[in-house]
Computed example of a mutant assay.
Amino acid sequence: MLQRESRVFAHVLSGLGLLAPWVLVYLSVTNGTRVWLTVLNLVAVYACLALRMYGRRNDRQRLVTWGGFGAVGSLALCLVVVSALQG
């Protein structure tokens, strides 16, 4: 039961991870600012998620771990840079 609950939690976080870059791109396009940064973030997050999927298919846990850290790190870095450039 606990494993199933943790799997649901992981799927929810993955869904948020897939949608967050698109929300940032939408917000930057509507504001007209820093579009290049958010598109670069979108590419970086999806590249890291692709690395993660590749690692899962080939049973390479290190690629899965680094892909996850890269996706979260890229999203966090983009949020920090955008907020710093706003003020």
Rank of each mutant, 00 (worst) to 15 (best):
L19P: 01
L19T: 01
L19W: 07
A20D: 06
A20K: 03
P21E: 04
P21W: 08
P21C: 10
W22N: 01
W22C: 01
W22S: 06
V23I: 15
V23N: 03
V23P: 07
S28N: 10
S28D: 03
S28L: 05
S28I: 04
S28R: 04
S28F: 00
S28M: 12
V29K: 08
V29Y: 00
T30Y: 05
T30H: 02
N31Y: 15
G32P: 00
G32Q: 00
G32N: 10
T33S: 12
T33R: 05
R34Y: 11
R34G: 06
V35F: 12
V35W: 10
W36K: 02
W36H: 03
W36L: 15
V39N: 02
V39D: 01
L40F: 15
L40G: 15
L42G: 03
V43G: 03
V43Y: 10
V43M: 11
V43C: 05
A44P: 07
A44V: 14
A44E: 09
V45S: 02
Y46P: 01
Y46T: 02
Y46I: 07
A47V: 11
A47P: 05
A47F: 09
C48E: 12
C48F: 15
A50F: 15
A50V: 11
A50T: 13
L51S: 08
L51P: 04
L51C: 11
L51I: 11
L51N: 03
R52Q: 14
M53Q: 00
Y54C: 02
G55A: 14
R56A: 04
R56W: 00
R57P: 01
N58T: 14
N58K: 04
D59E: 08
D59S: 07
D59V: 02
R60V: 13
R60K: 14
R60H: 07
R60A: 09
Q61I: 08
Q61A: 13
Q61H: 13
R62A: 13
R62Y: 11
L63A: 10
L63N: 00
V64T: 00
V64I: 08
T65V: 14
T65S: 00
G68T: 11
F69W: 05
F69Q: 00
F69H: 04
G70D: 10
G70Y: 14
A71I: 07
A71V: 06
A71S: 09
A71C: 08
V72A: 12
V72Q: 05
G73R: 13
G73Y: 11
S74I: 07
S74C: 14
S74G: 09
L75T: 08
L75G: 01
A76T: 08
L77C: 12
L77A: 14
C78V: 08
L79K: 07
L79S: 14
L79N: 06
L79P: 06
V80W: 15
V80H: 01
V81R: 01
V81P: 01
V81N: 03
V82N: 11
V82R: 07
V82I: 13
V82L: 15
V82Q: 10
S83I: 13
S83C: 13
A84E: 08
A84W: 11
L85D: 15
L85Q: 13
L85W: 11
Q86T: 06
Q86F: 03
Q86V: 03
Q86E: 04
Q86R: 10
